[in-house]
Amino acid sequence: MTQLFKPELVCPAGTPASLRTAVEAGADAVYCGFQGPTNARNFPGLNFTRDEMITAVDWAHQRGAKVLSAINSFPTAGRTQIWKDAIDDAVSIGVDAAIIADIGMADYMHKSHPDHRMHLSVQAGASSPEAINFYCERFDIKRVVLPRILTVAEIKKVHDEIPCEIEAFVFGNIGMMAEGRCALTNYVTGLSTNMDGVCSPANFVNYEEDENLNLTTRLGEFAIDCISCNENAGYPTICKGRYNTVHKQEYYAFEEPISLNLTALLPDLMKAGVTALKIEGRQRSRAYVRSVVSEFRGAVDAYSEGKYPDISNLLALTEGQKETQGAFRSKTWR
């Protein structure tokens, strides 16, 4: 195999400790958010205060790693100031780029900080060259994080038709719905993925075991799955639950509880012109971050030197030990 352009490895940092772990394990860049509703992983115990962000950016920059700030939820009318403050603070703290989803916030950032680097979040759901070109033309977007709904062949095509860099998810939890266009959590809990940055919030999750050790997982008042004692229970997200229809019973109507693992497709993605490879998991433990980042560091380095790395370890880290290449390999996924 010939040598390939070495892409940037973009890794999750839910906390300052995870950030350090990811950088030490070989991340070229980390992405993280401020505490509160301004990012799409607004979970208790996660994310950075302003002071923590200042320290983290300084620490990462000393080690040659970039920090990307996710400000990628959608402010409801009446509270845009919280998001504007987050953008202003991220810029003044000196993050390497802000990752924006809301078109109004992209407009704000472009007008207020025209020289600062802006990435388009996966939450913006820009899935075609036309959509990406619109964002680039209007807001001078430097990089688009592609939705997880395109095949590698389609990514190659997108790459050839847009002026900006591409960042693609390669590993971790995979939501089944188009990013930025899912109100399922809000339908059940009253908290919105887009407006509040939450998906299947833990305080609405319940596990109930019956006398046969079958486990019913519940979000709010709706049963999401019922898991027998010999199955691995995934975290109850609506799009990975089991349901009934008239035509088919007890089936994963949207997707099974599986994780995305594109390790085997890395060379294809690198050839397709992907600039940055993104690992999901700001809510995951430091041990998880360390393992996944070091495995990917090894794999990316090996592929770019024309070698074939051993990628078997990553399977053990996927959700329920089940993995998928999702939409990336072929259209039959759809």
Partner: peptide, 14 residues
């Protein structure tokens, strides 16, 4: 109410 969109067709999947 339209709640979500996906690249996958869930009618076809069923």
């Amino acid at each position: 109410i339209g709640l979500a969109l996906s690249a996958r067709c869930y009618h076809a999947r069923t």
